[in-house]
């Protein structure tokens, strides 16, 4: 419905096209971008650059964050020490660190990837930790009464019990990472969708800006759907304990 309003406004010339591009113009721009590219870089290359960054940063964040979160959930001392630190830095927008990261790692791929790593890391630590501490005591008790050892309970009760929370964390993290990445690319990258939008903007190519936003939105939705499907596939028991 929004789309129809958008289309009508262009067709009837209500909206000023120099300010807000209409759908036909946007689609034309998108087509040009997809085939010839803009500033010699095609849409696919931008998308690929962005996806590569997010997969590396998010991936490492999950791989490191989950064990840390599990350890914090299992060990009271670790939790007591690191909880306040995590709580302290968690609310800071990852983008605030970007100047320091650029200073430390130089301009290039690394700062953005490290930033995404941190964004995912905090979320995954909290998620994994919550997954562990959220285990129903009666489940652990039942396992003990059935003769399971501590190790066995960890492996067979606490870990599977934490999985839903971990998956939810991954879904949250990938959303945060995607948005943050785009914002980071706006200010400090040559490739990627954010960079493409930034360049398009400096050349007053508003239709490319709007097209980029749509692509970002669509990819965001796709990433989310992938995570949802993965949840359905790997943890069908989620929320049905």
């Amino acid at each position: 419905m929004l789309f129809i309003i958008w289309l009508l406004s262009e067709a009837l010339g209500i909206a000023d096209p120099t300010f807000f591009p209409g759908p036909i113009e946007t689609i034309q721009g998108g087509w040009e971008l997809a085939t010839d590219g803009f500033q010699r870089v095609t849409l696919a290359e931008h998308v690929f650059a962005s996806l590569r960054r997010i997969l590396i940063g998010f991936g490492i964040g999950v791989v490191v964050g989950v064990p840390v979160g599990l350890a914090m959930g299992l060990n009271n001392t670790l939790r007591a020490i690191f909880d306040p630190l995590i709580e302290l830095f968690r609310p800071v927008p990852p983008l605030a660190f970007i100047p320091l990261l650029i200073l430390w790692f130089g301009i290039g791929e690394t700062p953005a990837v490290v930033m995404l790593f941190f964004a995912a890391f905090f979320i995954m630590v909290i998620a994994a930790r919550a997954g562990v501490t959220g285990v129903r005591l009666s489940k652990v008790h039942a396992a003990y009464s059935l003769g399971a050892s501590k190790q066995q309970i960890l492996r067979n009760v606490i870990l599977p019990n934490a999985l839903p929370e971990i998956f939810v964390g991954m879904r949250v993290a990938i959303g945060v990472c995607w948005g943050t990445l785009v914002a980071a690319e706006l200010v400090g990258a040559q490739t990627g969708l954010g960079a493409m939008i930034w360049t398009a903007r400096t050349f007053f190519r508003n239709e490319l800006v709007v097209f980029g936003i749509i692509i970002i939105g669509v990819i965001g939705v796709i990433l989310d759907l992938i995570m949802r499907k993965a949840e359905e596939r790997f943890i069908p028991w989620r929320g049905r304990g």
Partner: peptide, 15 residues
């Protein structure tokens, strides 16, 4: 394991 326990609910392993 000489003492088994049955809880009200939610103690089964849903996975």
């Amino acid at each position: 394991q000489d003492r088994g326990m049955v809880f009200q609910q939610g103690a089964l392993f849903e996975w």
